[in-house]
């Protein structure tokens, strides 16, 4: 348990140690002087080479926000949040942008502290934590079997049991996030003026709702060539929207 506590302590401290100045500074100078379009181009070039850079997504979100593009701004902030959910700046700007579009990061019914804890680890970190715990469980279990009957063997067996429980917890946490978080399997309406929601994947279906720009939506079905089936959790409605009007939150699935 001590090791576990240490792991979470290091979890908080590690980001600060990793930071240094970067090529982002060059484009931040453009941002500073109000040349947001050029700064955005710079941030995108950084992201082309390093799509897992949360600062670049965050800065791009800032540039888009300044360019009065709330939808893409929410998208970029959300991607930054998915990669680095503990960053106070990312949380603040995402929340700010969401509020500009009638949403909020922390639901009213959820305590802020609980929300922070729930998003303390990113999906990737949770997955890695599950894998590490799985490795630990297997290796400790193997040691326990090989040292069968001895005191070290019994200790290894206990470590394996704890690791196995941790693995299950991490998987449960990850599973809960996938099913409940708007940032897992989600997308953002990026079309200015909002996206039409049709009753089917085609123009011959009736438009019965619209999702405003910047709205976080749930991707229910991505199988169609031109349409996503999206769901609006708050309103409890779903419909089909053009893929060109929705950007997926998971960068790997996006076409840049």
């Amino acid at each position: 348990m001590k090791l576990l506590a240490l792991f979470f302590l290091l979890l908080q401290a590690a980001p600060a140690a990793a930071y240094d100045r970067s090529e982002l500074a060059e484009f931040n100078d453009l941002y500073k002087t109000g040349r947001y379009e050029e700064a955005l181009e710079g941030y995108r070039s950084v992201l082309a080479g390093d799509p897992a850079n949360p600062s670049a997504w965050y800065n791009a979100g800032n540039a888009l926000f300044r360019l009065n593009r709330p939808g893409p701004a929410v998208l970029n902030y959300s991607r930054a949040f998915i990669l680095d959910p503990r960053s106070p700046d990312i949380r603040a700007n995402l929340d700010y942008a969401l509020k500009q579009t009638g949403q909020q990061l922390v639901p009213e019914t959820v305590p802020a502290a609980l929300h922070y804890v729930y998003y303390m680890l990113s999906d990737g970190e949770l997955k890695a934590a599950a894998l590490i715990c799985f490795w630990l469980a297997c290796l400790a279990g193997a040691a326990g079997f090989l040292l069968d009957g001895s005191a070290p063997g019994r200790a290894a067996g206990r470590a394996a049991a704890v690791s196995a429980v941790m693995t299950l917890l991490a998987l449960a946490w990850l599973g809960g996030r996938v099913t409940t978080s708007p940032f897992s399997e989600g997308g953002v309406v990026v079309k200015q003026g909002g996206a039409r929601m049709l009753s089917g994947p085609g123009e011959n279906f009736k438009t019965y709702a619209s999702a405003p720009e910047g709205r976080l939506v749930r991707i229910l079905d991505a199988g169609d060539d031109a349409y996503y089936e999206i769901g609006l959790q708050k309103e409890g409605i779903k419909g089909w929207a053009l893929k060109s009007e929705i950007e997926l939150l998971t960068p790997k699935r996006t076409s840049k």
């Binding site: 930071y19 970067s22 931040n28 700064a39 850079n53 949360p54 990669l83 680095d84 700010y96 890695a128």
Partner: peptide, 21 residues
């Protein structure tokens, strides 16, 4: 909104997790 960041890359932990994954 808060100001842009000058940080080079993702923090160590996400990078480490990315490597594991």
């Amino acid at each position: 909104i808060r100001y842009v960041k000058d940080l080079a890359s993702a923090p160590a932990l996400p990078r480490f997790a990315e490597g594991i994954n």
